[in-house]
């Protein structure tokens, strides 16, 4: 194993911003910043519960665009072919709903509270991701 493309400083600073963001949501309105749950909840057919979820979605985009301008991050990202994106996207959407969380809800917020469910979930999805990348040779 060799270490490549390691960017510790932006990663740590970005992580601190993510920590501040999830702390603010918890202190302000008492909610966990779990993105799959927040966005998946848009499909719950409860119209009164939709506005805040849409505000979160807009905020994510505006914040990312702001940082793109500020830190001069790449204009384009290189993604894999559409077949990978479609299959991966479907599994990611379905799996995060079935498993009640993703990298933000389990990986960041849950681990911060030492939630046993989130520790199990994070170990499971990271292990599954490592095995998948190994076998697909991505």
């Amino acid at each position: 194993m060799t270490i490549v493309n390691f960017t510790p400083l932006p990663a740590l600073l970005g992580g601190i911003l993510i920590g501040l963001a999830s702390t603010i949501l918890l202190v302000g309105v008492g909610r966990i910043f779990g993105i799959s749950g927040i966005i998946g909840g848009l499909f719950n057919f409860d119209k009164g519960d939709r506005l805040w979820r849409i505000i979160i979605l807009v905020g994510l985009l505006v914040g990312a665009f702001f940082m793109h301008l500020l830190a001069n991050t790449p204009d384009k990202i290189s993604a894999l072919p559409s077949s990978y994106l479609i299959i991966g996207g479907l599994l990611m959407g379905f799996g995060t709903r079935l498993g009640s969380g993703c990298t933000s809800g389990h990986g960041v917020c849950g681990l911060s509270r030492f939630s046993i469910r989130s520790i199990i979930a994070t170990v499971s999805f990271m292990a599954a991701g490592v095995v998948t990348v190994y076998f697909l040779n991505i």
């Binding site: 991966g88 709903r97 969380g101 999805f125 599954a128 991701g129 998948t132």
Partner: peptide
Amino acid sequence: GSILFGIGWGIAGFC
């Protein structure tokens, strides 16, 4: 659910 998510995460590279 977490395993399925992890597989999708690996395939697409997005969470």
